[in-house]
Design a protein around this nucleic acid. Structure first.
Lengths: 207, 207
DNA sequence: CACACAATTAATAGAGCTATTAAATATAAT
DNA sequence: ATTATATTTAATAGCTCTATTAATTGTGTG
């Protein structure tokens, strides 16, 4: 049946489903459509994953983990000054969002569609970034005490970073439709906002 | 049939439909559900609005206009210094988003569901805030020339403001689920972020 | 080859949804 | 009161979707 003989049908279904779910969301995606895109019978989707919910959860769980663990990926930044470290964190978060630009909307929608299940899922991965947060918080408070940056909580810093980074990719489709941006212009906006988000946050931290 | 005898059935359908559409989005809302919530026959929804799309568009168009025109409501702020004016603008934008906290997600989803129709709709209301933007831009550039604020474009300023303000209400359901926030705690976060968003932007503008 | 098992398909039950139609009921006007 | 018009309902056609079942084809193993 296959174009790519190297992968199993099950993998093909997963990959196609991931793409379509990210494109159109859970509600507007049918197993019929997935099967058609894979080039197989619709029953086969249910043969491997039984239900549409199962299939979605398999994909969503993996993406969700990746996204939350990747919020602030640990790197070898120990020796850097705090603000340089922060710059790296903001930029790598931006890059992660850019590489998964349709995921935030899916997660937000999924939380409003069935908050309970997503909460259960998220409990499985509790506590992963806590160590990093602890360390960052210590450094942050040291900087504040030393008078090198203004009073601010780590939560606010994270909230602002995530807000600015994900919003770009939530709003860009709207802005580019309203202002008729072409692909080149969109790319320009993206790299421009990448630096602007960093500037905004770092500048605002001055005491 | 009615609880509120003062309003027509048509109005009742509109109000109920608005609430449910905002709650669950277009795809997950059925005319059957709307009718049940209104307390009328399902055919009546189609009698007044013919199609579900029509009903949705009627509501969406009105909300969409309100939201975009209200992005930067004009006020009597002429005599204020630029930064004070900006503070007012950010705060009143925040308040408008807070009063319509489920609307941004609906608009974002609708843009990805049918970008073309929404673009056509948006063309109808082109040019409303242009005057204000012009004026703000002049003032902004004057401040930059005078060295009172750093180099930044008005577009970036708007983008950051909208990003920070809408993201709070996109992320709060997730955060409050993950951290088990109660209603009081959520309210605290909201008022805290209201001032933090202003601080973030104003602080970042220093040269 | 023959047998077991995996993969795939066709067919369809069952459910929910949109939209229409025709009939019933309420309302207003003369 | 009668008639026209507006409102409301019941019934249902037609569609799409999910999920299951039974039958068919493929594949590897003894």
């Amino acid at each position: 049946m296959e174009d790519k003989p190297s992968q199993t049908t099950e993998q093909a279904i997963l990959e196609v489903a991931e793409r379509i779910f990210l494109e159109k969301g859970f509600a507007l995606t049918s197993t019929t459509e997935i099967a058609k895109a894979v080039g197989c019978n619709q029953a086969l989707v249910h043969y491997y994953f039984r239900t549409k919910d199962n299939l979605f959860n398999t994909i969503f769980e993996q993406k969700f983990k990746m996204f939350f663990q990747g919020i602030f990926e640990i790197k070898n930044l120990d020796e850097l000054p705090f603000l340089d470290k922060l710059k790296h964190i903001i930029e790598s978060h931006f890059d992660m969002v850019m590489a998964n630009s349709k995921l935030p909307l899916l997660i937000i929608n999924e939380f409003s569609r069935r908050p309970e299940q997503v909460r259960l899922l998220s409990e499985k991965l509790q506590g992963i970034p806590e160590k990093l947060f602890e360390k960052l918080n210590v450094e942050l408070e040291a900087e504040i005490s030393a008078g090198r940056i203004r009073q601010i909580s780590l939560m606010d810093l994270i909230m602002s970073t995530v807000s600015l980074n994900i919003s770009l990719f939530l709003l860009l489709p709207i802005a580019s439709e309203l202002m008729s941006l072409n692909e080149t212009q969109k790319q320009f906006v993206i790299i421009h906002r990448r630096t602007e988000n960093v500037n905004l946050i770092l500048n605002s931290l001055r005491p």
